[in-house]
C-alpha cells in the first residue's frame, strides 16, 4: 500500500510497454490505418472508412427525411 502511494505521486506513472504482451508495438503510436485493423466483412463496404461514410450518409438522409416530413405536414 505504501509503495502504491509512493508510485501514485512519482509522476512518471506506469510504462506502457511493460503492460503489453511481448512483441506488441506501442499502442498509442501505431499509425492510424483505417481498415487495417480488421475486415468489415460487409458487402459493398470493404473498408471502415466507407462504413463511417455510409453511417454519416444515413444521418444526412434521416435529417433530410425529417425536414421533408416537417414541411409536408406544416
Amino acid at each position: 500500500m505504501f509503495h502504491f502511494i509512493q508510485r501514485l505521486f512519482r509522476g512518471t506513472g506506469l510504462r506502457t510497454r511493460e503492460l503489453l504482451p511481448h512483441g506488441s508495438g506501442d499502442p498509442f503510436h501505431s499509425p492510424a490505418q483505417p481498415g487495417a485493423d480488421e475486415s468489415t466483412g460487409l458487402p459493398g463496404l470493404p473498408t471502415w472508412r466507407r462504413v463511417y461514410l455510409f453511417v454519416f450518409g444515413c444521418f444526412v438522409l434521416w435529417v433530410v427525411l425529417l425536414v421533408v416530413f416537417s414541411r409536408v405536414f406544416a
Binding site: 508510485r7 501514485l8 505521486f9 509522476g11 506513472g13 506506469l14 506502457t16 503492460l19 499502442p27 498509442f28
Partner: peptide, 26 residues
C-alpha cells in the same frame, strides 16, 4: 475509429484502466 481500437489493443476492463496505461495510476 479512435477510442475503441485503443481500448481493445490494451485489453482493458474499464475505460479508467486505459487512463492508467496512458498516463499514470493517480
Amino acid at each position: 475509429a479512435v477510442f475503441l481500437p485503443l481500448y481493445r489493443r490494451l485489453d482493458v476492463y474499464t475505460a479508467y484502466e486505459f487512463l492508467g496505461r496512458r498516463f499514470d495510476a493517480k
